[in-house]
Simulated scan of single mutants.
Amino acid sequence: MIRVGLTGWGDHPDVYSPASKKTDKLKDYGGHFKIVELDSTFYAIQPERNIRKWIGETPDDFGFIVKAYQGMTGHHRGRLPYESEEEMFRLFRLSVGPMLEAGKLPMILAQYPPWFDCTKENVGVLRKMREYLDDLDVAVEFRHQSWYSEKYRKGTLDFLREQRFIHSVCDEPQAGDGSVPFVPEATREDKTLVRLHGRNTAGWKANGRDDKKWREVRYLYDYNDNELKGLAGEISGISSEDVFVVFNNNSGGHAAENAKRFMGIAGIETARPGAQQLDLFGGEDL
């Protein structure tokens, strides 16, 4: 089964009912998509009250792909706000516990930075991640090409299988070492994650450390029908029981519309029974 969603639920006006309040965004979102990528966990480990609120606002079959806290994947700069690495991982696991209990946690997404290359030291970092989150399903996303080089690609995928990591397959611009190729290969029989970042090569090359607006251009992309058809064909061939597809190309507000078109092309149900639906193409209630 292919399950489709977006990164976050707070910035997709196409999926909100005109009569809804600002606090109803997640409820409206859950009427269109079965999964969402929870990005707020990257910036801070979330308090239990937030987690339980989000659980209560979503359908029983809804799933949160929870992004690992930045201190867990090497993005955090400066001193971590925790006494130890062990405490950080322990608090993160406690935070997502209610989602796991509710059956709404299909996976944790551990996205590593562009400078996290394929070295023995970094393989050790991944082993430690697996130890800390041993009882959770974890998807690993690389952003350095070396992991998929001719020399290391097979070893990378075999290692992910050995460690029971879910492979995060990425569609993104091919813009040097800081981008990875599209490799639609499963490392687990039950789950694979696919993240669609768009194909804005110029935006992808923008320097995130120097340009404050780099995020606004990095994911600025509108997939055309031929691209979505190609992706649908590749994704349908991934040998996992469930494939989770997340659109992250929302700098220009294209993600929701692209996801709906993809679902139509792939023959996936685009309306959830019992929920108020909006036609993303005409803006009228269905």
Rank of each mutant, 00 (worst) to 15 (best):
R209I: 06
L136V: 08
E83V: 06
D60A: 10
L196W: 06
E284M: 11
F64K: 04
P273D: 12
M99R: 03
E162L: 09
A102K: 05
H75F: 15
D60G: 00
S149L: 10
N200M: 13
L157N: 04
D158I: 01
E150T: 14
G282Q: 14
A139E: 10
N226M: 08
K260N: 04
D61N: 14
R209A: 15
V180A: 13
S179N: 10
G56M: 02
H32N: 14
E257Y: 07
R209N: 13
Q111N: 09
G78P: 00
R49I: 12
E121M: 07
Q174D: 10
M1P: 01
R199F: 03
K120A: 13
T23H: 11
D279Y: 09
G274E: 12
G30C: 15
A206H: 00
F62P: 05
T41W: 02
Y132P: 00
K212G: 07
V4F: 01
D210V: 02
R161F: 04
H254L: 01
F64V: 08
D285H: 05
V4T: 06
R272A: 03
G274D: 10
T201R: 07
F281R: 04
S168P: 03
V36R: 00
L94A: 14
K25R: 15
G63F: 01
C170W: 00
L196N: 04
E150M: 04
G253S: 10
V246A: 04
F262Y: 14
H12Y: 12
G253I: 09
L6W: 02
D117V: 02
R153M: 14
M107R: 03
P273R: 07
G74K: 13
L196K: 01
Y43I: 07
P181H: 07
G208E: 08
F142D: 12
H76N: 04
E227K: 03
T201H: 00
A139C: 07
R79N: 11
R161G: 06
V138E: 08
E101D: 15
R272H: 06
G274N: 06
L228A: 07
W147M: 10
T7I: 12
K53W: 06
V15A: 13
F33P: 00
K212F: 11
G203W: 12
N122L: 11
V194Y: 03
D24F: 02
G237I: 01
G71H: 02
R261C: 05
D225L: 10
D39P: 00
G253Q: 06
L38F: 14
D285V: 14
M88F: 02
A275M: 13
